[in-house]
């Protein structure tokens, strides 16, 4: 899995939990919170959907790694690789 694949999986999740957001022009290096109307409940959902769909665990102490698409990819890609 490449980092781009990983970003795509995260976008898939966000599009399901926040179908009312426009995800077509997300800038990967900018915090998701600053581009989209996402609150802590939505971030919890990203964590829970990663577990449900992909068996990836994100402990509470690591939630901050999900701030931007870029940081998501940085943090999650090795976790996906470890599962493969």
């Amino acid at each position: 899995m490449t980092k781009d694949d990983c970003k795509k999986l995260v976008i898939d999740i966000i599009s399901d939990i926040a179908p009312d957001e426009d995800l077509s022009a997300i800038k990967p290096e900018i915090r998701l919170r600053d581009q989209l109307q996402l609150d802590s409940m939505d971030f919890l959902d990203i964590v829970m959907e990663l577990r449900k769909r992909h068996g990836i665990e994100v402990p509470e102490a690591d939630y901050s790694h999900l701030a931007s698409l870029e940081s998501c990819a940085e943090y999650l890609t090795p976790k996906f690789a470890a599962k493969a």
Partner: peptide, 13 residues
């Protein structure tokens, strides 16, 4: 966006 109704719709899909 950002109001309780919208949060609820999102959270319950």
């Amino acid at each position: 966006k950002g109001t309780p109704l919208v949060k609820l719709l999102r959270q319950l899909r």
